[in-house]
């Protein structure tokens, strides 16, 4: 059963530093072509580690559709 929440990155403000990639326990987040981090909602369990780590504050946990 998927988690209620998943990480969502704001590509406009992501600095693509890769801090989130290092802390993700499920490798559910990657940096896309050096532009922005991108989380895979199907793998993300919404633990929030990347949210706490992100120095640019661009990651938030979002409710999955239909589970809000």
């Amino acid at each position: 059963m998927p988690s209620k929440r998943f990480a969502l990155v704001d590509p406009a403000y992501c600095v693509a530093c890769g801090c989130c990639v290092k802390v993700c326990p499920l490798s559910a987040i990657a940096v896309w072509r050096g532009v922005t981090a991108q989380a895979d909602p199907s793998r993300c369990v919404g633990c929030g580690k990347c949210v706490r780590e992100c120095p640019a504050g661009t990651i938030s946990l979002t409710e999955r559709e239909g589970q809000a």
Binding site: V21, A28, I29, A30, V31, W32, R33, A39, D40
Partner: peptide, 8 residues
């Protein structure tokens, strides 16, 4: 992007 990390 599927976030697979392949590009990195």
């Amino acid at each position: 992007c599927a976030g697979c990390g392949g590009c990195a």
